[in-house]
Design a protein around this nucleic acid. Structure first.
Lengths: 155, 155
DNA sequence: CTGTATCCTAGTTGATACTG
DNA sequence: CAGTATCAACTAGGATACAG
């Protein structure tokens, strides 16, 4: 078991230890519109028009990003029909999409704390009312501060 | 106190409730190279050549992104001098940069689980050895699953 | 309402060469 | 080693018009 955190031995590029999931994630989801659509989807938005209006992007951008997110498995098209209308699709979060939300909330928290902004929004635990943040935690239930985090090479 | 999570009442665009920190964060850090440079900085990389070689980008891209990250306050230039050389700068994580890492590790974890990859790396708690993940937790120490997360409107 | 098509601009990135 | 300069390719995204 090798621990990478801290000063590195001799290692060149990520290629030496395999492809980097961070890079792959950014390739699939590394756009502002994708992040904001995920935020909206979590808020409960499902309809095309609501996405582009609430996110504040063009319909073209929304269509492109929604298709990307469906293809990547974060959103799912689900047909619905308003009375007297043709069948249309709405976009709902999948499990994979829900599991992506820590990325979004981590960005929310960092931006809220470190960038000039006056957002009145706060993350909170509905059940107990306390404010919430995004943190690294271990399987034993400890919070893992940056100095205690290890990136282990397995196998 | 209003809770936004779940179906929304009548709300248009984020502008109605202030600027979105997620969007601002993406504006500053929404590039693949910035994320990967942050990863490298956390690993302990500090020198210009190590950044572009290990991240696998051009020197031009590395220079641009390193400057951005310094300006945004995530990295800090610190002068050093090798014997017989002129003074140069190395780039070290600031507190704001360290606090950004949950974003990076959340992406790592999501990509590792949901995208095809064979990375042998795992996050772990150095102190107890258990594997680690990125989660939403509240001030009372509870893990906050997606259904229990609220986004509250304060003031 | 739910898109698609087109034009246009700005930013990211790679490749390559050059400087101190 | 630590950059800067240039060029070209690609992508994101706004504006606008059009279609089912």
């Amino acid at each position: 078991m090798t621990v990478l955190q801290g000063r590195l031995a001799n290692r060149d590029a990520w290629s030496a230890i395999g492809e980097c999931p961070i890079e792959k994630t950014m390739t699939v989801l590394g756009t502002k519109s994708a992040m904001l659509i995920m935020r909206e989807a979590y808020y409960g938005t499902t309809r095309f028009e609501d996405f582009w209006r609430r996110v504040g992007i063009t319909k073209a951008a929304a269509a492109a990003r929604l298709s990307d997110l469906v293809e990547a498995g974060l959103l799912e098209r689900r047909p619905y029909r308003e009375p007297g209308q043709r069948s249309r699709d709405e976009y709902v979060l999948t499990d994979a999409g829900t599991e992506f939300m820590p990325v979004v909330w981590a960005m929310f928290e960092w931006g809220r704390r470190h960038l000039p902004n006056r957002t009145p929004l706060r993350l909170a635990h509905r059940d107990c009312g306390a404010e919430a943040t995004v943190e690294v935690v271990c399987a034993d239930g400890h919070r893992v501060p940056p100095e205690e985090l290890a990136v282990r090479l397995t196998r």
